[in-house]
């Protein structure tokens, strides 16, 4: 028995050393990766992002706000931190990381929306955080969601299990070989799509509309986030982007949602720009689905937003 236990322990130690080595190689590689998944977060943690204007939000930021247009009109350097499918809690973490490793931005454009303060069970695209689980605050956030399991946090390399493509990306990036390059411009992902039928399906399955449930803890954290930005002397503009008007009729408590944002803005004396009733919302040609603008719509909206920001002269205020 003694021999067996010794053998198992020695084999276990050798296996662990192998796994630690692999974990190190893959994690360091992914931190250098230029792929779509890692490019933005790597720039944040490297401290090379360094923008005057940060656009924070979910896919509603990612595909709808073009830094190129903002930069031209406002004569600033902006970057879009939009995270597809993610609500406020992961966005907050990403901003916290930004704040830690980069100089303070002049302005944050916080894109809000109906699902912004919901709390989903799953963290979409959670693997983007895999190489950074040891960073302060990252696992505290990811643990709130389904995604990484207990063993992912404690056994080296296990969190990459089954992600052959990611493992290859990680290993190759160590040698400067990048299988995939992020083609987004400063984080913005233009969607040159035509209207799909998802809204019709949604409408058919929810003829009486839906009720938006805003998570209390997320609401509280959002309030604290706005307060902290104000205290740090960072300008903030909350933006409710255009959504296809007929879809808004299906949100039974739309008023409650908008009023919440208005109240937060008022309490903290920050600007809230509501484009939900803007002419763009009424034009189907600007959308590829009820919640997202296509390339054409996004450009139109960003111009409008940039002009509005310019008219406030907020960037020249101290």
């Amino acid at each position: 028995m003694k021999k067996f236990i010794t053998t198992v322990i020695v084999f276990g130690i050798i296996s662990l050393i192998t796994l630690y080595t692999l974990d190190y190689l893959v994690s360091t590689g992914l931190r250098k990766s230029k792929s779509d998944t890692y490019n933005t977060i790597n720039k944040i943690v490297d401290g090379t992002l360094n923008a005057d204007i940060i656009i924070n939000g979910s896919s509603k930021a990612l595909v709808q706000v073009s830094p190129k247009i903002l930069d031209t009109i406002l004569n600033q350097n902006s970057y879009n931190l939009g995270m597809d499918g993610n609500e406020f809690i992961p966005q907050l973490l990403q901003y916290e990381l930004y704040k830690k490793y980069n100089p303070k931005p002049k302005l944050i454009i916080q894109i809000v929306g109906n699902d912004f303060l919901q709390k989903k069970e799953e963290l979409i695209g959670y693997m983007r955080f895999a190489p950074y689980l040891k960073l302060n605050g990252v696992s505290a956030m990811t643990e709130q969601y389904k995604g990484f399991s207990f063993i992912d946090y404690h056994l080296p390399f296990y969190r990459y299990s089954g992600y052959f493509g990611l493992i290859m990306d990680g290993l190759l990036s160590n040698f400067g070989i990048h299988r995939q390059i992020d083609l987004k411009y400063k984080g913005y992902q233009e969607k040159d799509y035509i209207w799909d039928n998802s809204f019709d399906k949604f409408k058919a399955s929810n003829p009486n509309g839906i009720q938006i449930k805003m998570n209390n803890s997320s609401k509280e954290k959002f309030n604290q986030y706005i307060e902290s930005l104000v205290q740090d002397n960072i300008h903030i503009i909350m933006v409710y982007p255009p959504t296809y008007l007929p879809s808004q009729d299906l949100i039974r408590n739309k008023k409650e949602v908008i009023n919440f944002y208005k109240a937060v803005a008022k309490n903290n004396n920050v600007l809230f720009l509501d484009y939900s009733s803007n002419f763009i919302s009424n034009e189907k040609k600007y959308f590829y689905n009820s919640q997202h603008l296509n390339k054409n719509g996004a450009e139109r909206f960003t111009k409008l937003l940039a002009e509005d920001i310019k008219s406030t002269d907020i960037l020249n205020k101290k």
Partner: peptide, 9 residues
């Protein structure tokens, strides 16, 4: 073991 981890379905 590595195959198990890398290629886990």
């Amino acid at each position: 073991i590595l195959l198990l981890l890398v290629f886990a379905g």
